[in-house]
Design a protein around this nucleic acid. Structure first.
Lengths: 188, 188
DNA sequence: ATGAAGATATACCGATCTGTTTACCTTGTC
DNA sequence: GACAAGGTAAACAGATCGGTATATCTTCAT
């Protein structure tokens, strides 16, 4: 029994390639080569490339949110502080050498129709991130948790784009400083 | 002499397709068919597809910023008001039926390497938009125009992503309400 | 030991990709 | 009317695309 099942190997390698090079630009052959797996095996686990894309995005959604929440919470103990350390977690992400923007924003660019399954999954991911911020806001006792989380979420999106497109390393710090205004507003 | 030169026909049609379907997903043959032009002619005007992509992005940069500035200024007469009507222009854009996010964010997703020419042009576009906001802030007499424009710009990016990925029609209004806080801050 | 499961490598399929070439046709200018 | 410029349609080249088929090998439970 290997550490990773064949299926996991494929998803892991596909994730790396899709994230770095894009979905349409990454061929199935390349994924097989990198994953050390035959084409037959890949199509034994996934009906089509598109199904693999979906599985990859699902995996990314789970692992990203886990890491994001862990990193946010590791940096502060109270929910209110976490509404800001969330941006420190973002900053650490931007600094990773293989940072290539948000995979779900990227997916929405390539699968731009709102009812494409990949686009829908991306919207779902964004909703779940916002829900997490909303939970923090609730726990912190914000006056209007939903409103606050919507505001902070928009700052998160803006920072990600700024960091990726313009390579602006200070985007997270900027967003954090802007977030402070709304967090204070929500508690006074 | 036709209204549009062959070159312009090609760029116009390529722009439509690249924006709607993505860069890698759009083939040269499809562009020729839609533009009513032979392949020979296309390759007579552009050395490669990649050069056409670049020309397309340049065209988009110019026409988008023109429209954006026009729409912003049409909605208010003073620079200070325009720092907010800018978000009304955004909202109108989001409502267009063929809205498919920001073409430069999309390009950065497919050409993710920071030193890819298409990515670099996208960064340049973002810089020019920010410069415009900075000009408005200067004309309005903001205390720190650069700082204000950086803040507003981040809100713009956030709104675009929210509108495209999540289909959130209210993103522009939200961003505008957040922008008010920083505009007021910059003048008190 | 045997046989089923699941893996491999590799060849193949038809379609599509970017880009080139050929041969013909139209158009404006002298 | 002749000629050059620039257009067309269409075939072609070579690579790669997503996906399938075949034939061989390993693994492992019985």
């Amino acid at each position: 029994m290997p550490a990773l099942s064949k299926r996991e190997q494929i998803v892991t390698e596909a994730l790396k390639l899709f994230y770095r090079d894009g979905f349409n630009a990454t061929g199935v052959d390349k994924i097989c080569t990198d994953a050390g797996v035959s084409k037959k095996t890949l199509y034994n686990h996934f009906k089509s490339k598109d199904e693999l894309v979906l599985a990859t995005l699902r995996q990314r959604d789970e692992s990203f949110r886990n890491k994001f929440m862990r990193e946010t919470e590791r940096r502060a103990s109270t929910p209110r502080e976490r509404l800001l350390t969330l941006f420190d977690a973002l900053e650490a992400w931007f600094q990773e050498k293989d940072f290539s923007g948000c995979m779900f924003i990227n997916a929405s660019a390539e699968f731009s129709s709102q009812d494409d399954p990949n686009h829908m999954l991306s919207a779902e991911h964004k909703r779940l991130v916002r829900d997490y911020i909303c939970e923090l806001a609730e726990q912190a006792g914000a006056r209007d948790p939903k409103a606050l989380s919507t505001q902070l979420n928009l700052l998160v999106e803006g920072a990600i784009v700024e960091a990726h497109v313009s390579g602006n390393k200070k985007a997270a710090k900027l967003a954090k400083s802007m977030a402070k205004v709304f967090v204070e507003q929500a508690f006074d």
